[in-house]
Design a protein around this nucleic acid. Structure first.
Ligand code: MN
Ligand code: MN
Ligand code: MN
Ligand code: MN
Lengths: 218, 218
DNA sequence: AAATAAATTTAGGTAAGACTAAAATATTGC
DNA sequence: GCAATATTTTAGTCTTACCTAAATTTATTT
C-alpha cells in the first residue's frame, strides 16, 4: 500500500516524465508539489526502497515499470472521477480537478471497475486527456488541430490549445465541447475558415484562429 | 479544517453517544477505533482545544454543538456515498461500508450537494439508517420490530437487529430488503408468526424470530 | 475503610512527512 | 581550469498520530 504522499509523488514524476524523457530533477518535482527540494530527496529514498523509482544521486529519477503502473492507476482514477463529476453531477469542467485530486486516492479496485462501467467506459476525461485502461495502457491517439482535418472527415474534439475564458465562452455558445463529434463540410482556402456540422446537425463556420486552437482525433 | 483522524474520532464519539447519553468513556472510543486508550486521551485534548468536545478528566467526553454538527456532516457524507455505491454502481449493501469510510472524508460542500441531488435526496442509506440533511437535522422516525406492527398496517423495512449471513441470506431469498414495503395481513397468537404481503403481492408467513429482527417504521 | 482492580492520564518514544540551515556535488562562465 | 553559481543531499527539528510503560484517579470488594 502507498500513502497519499507517495501516490502524489509518483503521479508527479509520471507527469513530468512525459516532457522530460531523461532523469527527472529534484527541483522539478519540488516545484510541482510545492515542497522543498530536501523533502523531495527524503521521499525519493523511500520510493527507491520500494522499487518504484530508480534514483541516481545528484542526477535525477526515473520510474520503474512498477512505479509507472502505480502512477497510471492514479491517473486513471483521477480522470474517471473527473468524468463522473462532469457527466453525472453536472460540474463544470473547470471545477473538478481539486476534487479529483482527493478522489484519486480512494482504495478499491472494484470501485473503479464499477465506476468505469457506470460511466460507459470513457476514453478521455473532460479536459480531453486520455484515460488509461485497467492494465495501465494509455491510448495515445495523436491530437491534431481541427484546422488540419480533411474535408468530409468525422472527428472528435479532444482538447484545446487556448483556454482563455473568452475562447471557452465562445465554444460554449457555439455548442462545441470536449468529446463532441464534428463533420468537416468544407474548407475555405482564402481565409482558412471551415464549414462544419455538429452532432445536432447544426451547421456553422469557424475562423482559422478557432480551428487551430481546437484539438481533435481521427 | 479537520484531519481524517479528527473526523473519525468525532464520528465515533457521535455514534457512541446515541446509546450512552452521558459522558463517553475513553475506553469505549479506543475499542471502536482500535487504538490504545492513551492515544484517545491525546486526541481528546486536541479536540477539546478545538472546542469540538467537552472533556472532564477521568469522567468522559461529550460533543459540543460544533462537534456534533461536524460529526453529522461526516455521517451524512458516509451515508450518501453508500446510497451512490448501491443505487448507482450496483454494489451489494454489505460491500459498501469500507469504501464509504474513505469517501466520507472528501472535502467539498458543493460535491455533497450535487451528489444529494443526483441521488434524488434520499432519506435513508442502504442499511436503513437516516441521512442527516445539509443543516445536520436527522429524521428520527422510531424504528420498531416488525413483530410489534399492528394488523392491516403498511410499513417500511428500515433496518435489522440481527445481521448474520444466515439471516441476510434468508431475507434475500424471501425478497425482503431495506426499503421494501410490507403489509401485515394477520398475526397468529399461538406462535407469534405473521402473515404478510410484499410489494410484489407475494404472500408469505414469517416466524416470530424473524419478525422481531426486522425493524420497520410507520 | 482499606485493599484491590479497573479506567484514565502522563511521560517518553517512533515513523511519516514536512521544514531550515549547512554541506556536498554538478554546472557554468571566463 | 578554476572560481562562482546552481542543484542536490545531509543533518537536525517539528507536528501528527500512533505506541508502551508507569503513574494517577476512580470503582469495586472484602
Ligand atoms: Mn485534473
Ligand atoms: Mn483532467
Ligand atoms: Mn457504513
Ligand atoms: Mn450505512
Amino acid at each position: 500500500m502507498l500513502s497519499f504522499a507517495e501516490e502524489n509523488y509518483l503521479k508527479t514524476i509520471y507527469h513530468i516524465s512525459l516532457k522530460d524523457k531523461k532523469g527527472i530533477a529534484t527541483n522539478a518535482i519540488s516545484e510541482v508539489l510545492k515542497t522543498k527540494p530536501s523533502s523531495v530527496t527524503d521521499m525519493l529514498k523511500k520510493l527507491s526502497n520500494k522499487k518504484m523509482i530508480q534514483h541516481v544521486k545528484y542526477y535525477g529519477v526515473n520510474l520503474t515499470d512498477k512505479g509507472k503502473k502505480e502512477a497510471l492507476t492514479i491517473v486513471r482514477k483521477h480522470r474517471l472521477w473527473e468524468v463522473f463529476l462532469v457527466d453525472k453531477l453536472k460540474f463544470n469542467w473547470d471545477e473538478v480537478h481539486e476534487i479529483a485530486e482527493q478522489l484519486e486516492h480512494i482504495q478499491s479496485k472494484l470501485l473503479i471497475e464499477k465506476l468505469d462501467e457506470f460511466l460507459g467506459f470513457p476514453t478521455v476525461d473532460p479536459h480531453g486527456d486520455p484515460i488509461p485502461d485497467a492494465l495501465g495502457e494509455i491510448q495515445v491517439k495523436a491530437q491534431i488541430p481541427l484546422s488540419e482535418a480533411g474535408i468530409k472527415a468525422h472527428v472528435v474534439v479532444v482538447g484545446l490549445k487556448e483556454t482563455s475564458p473568452a475562447f471557452l465562452k465562445y465554444l460554449d455558445k457555439s455548442g462545441i465541447y470536449i468529446g463532441c463529434k464534428i463533420k468537416i463540410v468544407d474548407k475555405v482556402e482564402f481565409d482558412g475558415s471551415m464549414e462544419i456540422t455538429l452532432e445536432n446537425k447544426k451547421n456553422m463556420t469557424i475562423s482559422e484562429v478557432v480551428a487551430t486552437n481546437i484539438l481533435i482525433t481521427e
